[in-house]
């Protein structure tokens, strides 16, 4: 009896206050302690990056000292590198590069992926064939090779890293958006919009897009991980940011030679910093997906 009442109560509250997708997602994330912690870590990193680029913290990261390779101490929390530069400050500045790469490459890749995906999925037919052919061709070349080729053409530097990663990693999102648009274009609300005389553009971007926006958001948070990892690999291969700029990839590149001399702190600092942000983004993106996409929910 008690049980039945409780169930009834639950049902009635749910029917009383229907939640929108977004409100439901927010309340789900609020209940997920782990996701919240990860979100906090991401905000913390973002704050570090922002303050570092404004020069408010770790401003003298390029300060050298004739005595290189001092181990971690109260003066230098993560020790110093071969030129006596503070590894902690360099790690903080590395955050700036890593996050800016995540952000800028997303700003390049997401519009490309969304637009092409939307057009292909919505119009179908020949247009779809063309776009599918295009992204299959792009996708058939391994990402790293494309990025390496592009950075040879454009020269080294952070700008070419942005462009290289941005223009090569939109295919996954494009596929997802295409599939969603194919599904949505025959739904009642789109047919209704059509009956009201809405143009193609209006149907695509005002009616369908908001309904698939959660996919873009999930993709956005996952892309950060790709961006950060690719930058590290590129810098490690000598194709990344310009010499002199602190980045985690360059720090790991340095560290591979230092390890034989017993210098572990630079490797530990860079991989540690990378570990926490990549893990946080992974968990947070997972939680976001669970919260936003009812079909993929696994808890």
């Amino acid at each position: 009896m008690t049980v039945a009442t409780a169930t009834m109560n639950q049902i009635s509250t749910q029917t009383q206050m229907p939640k929108s997708l977004w409100a439901d997602a927010i309340s789900r994330i609020k209940r997920d302690k782990l996701a919240l912690t990860c979100g906090a870590i991401i905000i913390f990193y973002a704050l570090l990056a922002l303050l570092a680029s404004l020069g408010l913290i770790a401003a003298d990261y390029a300060q050298t000292n004739p005595q290189g390779f001092s181990p971690p101490s109260p003066d230098h929390w993560f020790g110093t590198d071969m030129f006596g530069r503070d590894v902690f400050m360099r790690t903080v500045h590395g955050t700036r590069i890593a996050l800016s790469i995540g952000l800028v490459t997303s700003l390049i890749a997401i519009p490309i992926g969304v637009c092409l995906g939307a057009i292909a999925g919505y119009f179908g037919g020949k247009v779809d064939d063309l776009i599918v052919w295009f992204y299959t061709t792009v996708d058939s070349i391994p990402d790293l090779l494309k990025i390496i080729a592009l950075s040879y053409v454009m020269g080294r530097g952070i700008l070419s890293v942005y462009v290289a990663i941005g223009f090569t990693t939109w295919v996954g999102l494009c596929r997802l958006i295409r599939a969603e648009f194919m599904k949505h274009k025959s739904r009642e609300y789109v047919l209704a919009a059509n009956a009201l005389g809405a143009s193609h553009t209006r149907r695509m971007f005002v009616h369908i897009l908001p309904n698939v926006f959660h996919i873009i958001l999930i993709n956005f948070s996952l892309r950060f991980i790709i961006g950060i990892k690719t930058e590290v690999i590129l810098s490690y291969l000598g194709l990344g940011v310009e010499p002199g700029q602190p980045s985690w990839g360059i720090m790991i590149d340095d560290a591979k030679q230092e390890l034989a001399q017993g210098v572990w702190w630079q490797l530990a600092a860079a991989t540690g910093a990378m570990f926490f942000i990549v893990l946080s983004f992974n968990i947070f993106a997972d939680a976001l997906r669970d919260a936003l996409d009812p079909k993929l929910r696994n808890k």
Partner: peptide, 11 residues
């Protein structure tokens, strides 16, 4: 290209 050359460059 190379780690040592890059370090030289920074130096």
């Amino acid at each position: 290209n190379g780690v040592t050359y890059r370090q030289f460059g920074e130096y």
